[in-house]
Amino acid sequence: MAWYCHYLSDFNGTPFNWTVITLFGFELLYIIFQASKGQLSHFNISTPTYSLLYSLMGLIAVVVTLYIAYIGLLFFTQSFPNLPSYYVWSIRLGIFIFVIFSFEGGLMGARMNHSVGAINDNSNWWILGWSKIVGDLRVSHFIGMHALQVLPLLSFYIFKNTKATIVISLLYGLLATSTLVQALKGKPIISQKKVKELE
């Protein structure tokens, strides 16, 4: 976001910087603190304090996502004569997909569970920890949020074409959506049979 924000005219990045540093800094410290005690940070409502802190984590994610959505809106309303149109569209669509799938994290929070078909399964699909046996909502969350980096990089260095950028962005969004639908059906990203073949 720091890279993208410097393209915006008359945009003061200082409030955004401190919002992200302060809020995510607090969240990161809480996650580290809980991990050091062998305690869950996410989905932990075992005490009133943990419940409050977990709720604050959700609120932090919402505030930062809304701020990024506002910046995305600026990319749609401002003109960028010094930038290739395909690159501008990749930033616009990357932020748009990011915002949608950032809010998808709220689905996990509402369910108090990132798995569909089990309770927070972590059967450790490779290094990512995604479930091998049931649906995992973290997959679409991960894919969708990284549109923020993937689409501008692909557009700027590989496709260099506005139509191609829009098509790839739509396909990327469909990929993230399909993994969400698959997870909600209780199916892992790769079937057990394929996992065993890969192993």
Rank of each mutant, 00 (worst) to 15 (best):
A110C: 08
R111W: 10
R111L: 06
N113A: 12
S115G: 12
G117P: 09
N120C: 14
D121Y: 01
N122D: 11
S123D: 12
S123W: 09
N124F: 13
N124G: 12
W125I: 12
W125T: 05
W125L: 15
W126G: 12
L128Y: 05
G129M: 08
G129W: 13
W130N: 02
I133E: 14
V134A: 09
L137F: 01
R138I: 05
R138S: 07
S140E: 00
S140I: 01
F142E: 00
G144M: 12
H146M: 14
Q149R: 02
V150A: 11
V150R: 03
P152V: 08
L154F: 11
L154E: 00
S155T: 03
S155P: 14
S155V: 10
Y157V: 13
I158L: 11
F159C: 02
N161W: 10
T162C: 02
T162Y: 08
A164R: 06
V167P: 01
S169P: 04
L170M: 12
L170W: 14
L170G: 10
L171Y: 05
L171C: 06
Y172M: 05
Y172S: 07
L174H: 09
L174W: 04
L174G: 13
A176R: 00
S178Q: 11
T179V: 09
L180D: 06
V181A: 15
A183T: 06
G186P: 00
P188L: 09
I189K: 04
I190C: 08
I190H: 03
S191I: 04
S191H: 05
S191M: 08
Q192A: 11
K193I: 14
K194R: 04
